[in-house]
Simulated assay, not measured.
Amino acid sequence: MRFVVLGDSFSEGVGDRVAGAWRGWAGLLAEGLAAEGRGAAFLNLAASGALSADVADTQAPRALAFRPHLASVVVGVNDTLRRGFDIVRLARRLDRVCADLDALGAVLLTACLPDPGRMLGLPPPLARPLARRQRSVNAVVHALSARYGAVHLHLADPAWTEDRALWSADRLHPGERGHRAVAAGFHGLLAARGIVHGAPPSTEPAQPQPTRTEALLWLATAGTGWVLRRSRDLLPQLLLLAGAELRHWADGTGTAPLDARAEDALAAALAATMGR
C-alpha cells in the first residue's frame, strides 16, 4: 500500500508535534492502512503555505512518480487568503491533479474545510469575503470528489468547527485531538470500502493538552510570525474586500451583488472542469 499526501499545512500536520516534528492526521492514518505484518509506504509532500499551484506544479509530479494506491489532495485555504484568488484557475489545477492520479488507479482522499474567517472570529466585513471564497473552493472539491469517486470527509460541518477542543491555539490548524479525529474519519470511510485493513487510529490524545500559558506563548512567537509573513499580502486584500462589503451595505444593495459575482465565477469554474 503506497500512500502519498499532497496539500498545505493541514496535511503537513501542523498542530500535532511529536518528537520535534509534525505528524498530523496523515501520519496517523498511514499507521493503520495495512494489516498486521504488512507494511505501507508513506510519502508526505504537503508543505505549509502551499497553494493549488504548488500542488499542481511541484507536488503532483513527485506524487505520480511514487505511483500511489492512495492519494490525499487537500488544498485551497491558502488560495482564499491571497490577492490573486481565482476559483477557475484553482478548479482547473485540482482537476488536472485528480485526473492524473485517478488515471494511475489511485483512490483519492479529499476534504472540504471551514473558512478561516469563521475560525478566527473575524468581524463580518472581513469574514464574509473569506467565507464566500471558501464556499466556492468546497463546491469545487465536492464536484471533483463526485467525479473521481473520492473518499470525501466533510470538515466544514458545525460538529467539527464548533468543537474548540479539536483545534490548536491558532484556530486554523487541528490540535492532536483534531488530527486524530480526521485520521479516524478517513480510516472509517476507507474501511467501509474495504481499502484499509489495519487498526483505526485512537481518537484520544497521547500527549497532554497545551496549557493556556503554552498556547499564549505559541501565539506570541510562532503565531506572530505567521501573521507577519502573510500581512504583506493578506491584510491589504482583506481591507479591500471589507471595503467592498461596506460600500454595498452603505448604498443599500447589501451583499447580493458580491454573492452573485461569486456564484458566476463558481459556475465558470465548474463548467471549466465538468464540461470537458
Rank of each mutant, 00 (worst) to 15 (best):
A99D: 14
T161Q: 10
V75P: 01
V137T: 08
L122M: 10
G121M: 08
A91V: 01
L90V: 04
C98P: 02
P123C: 07
P114L: 05
L109W: 09
R128P: 01
W160F: 13
W160R: 09
P116G: 11
R147H: 06
T161M: 08
G105N: 07
L126D: 01
R135V: 08
V107W: 05
P114K: 06
D79E: 00
R133W: 09
A159N: 04
S72T: 02
D79K: 04
A143D: 03
H142Y: 11
A143E: 03
L122Y: 02
L108D: 00
P124K: 12
N138R: 12
L153T: 08
L126T: 04
L126C: 06
P125A: 11
G117M: 07
V140E: 05
M119D: 00
D100R: 15
P116H: 03
A111S: 14
A99I: 11
D115R: 01
V141M: 07
P114A: 00
L120Q: 14
L122P: 02
G117N: 05
R128A: 08
L104F: 00
P129K: 00
A131G: 13
L90S: 05
Q134P: 13
R135S: 12
V151A: 10
G76L: 02
M119H: 00
Q134F: 01
P125R: 05
L144K: 01
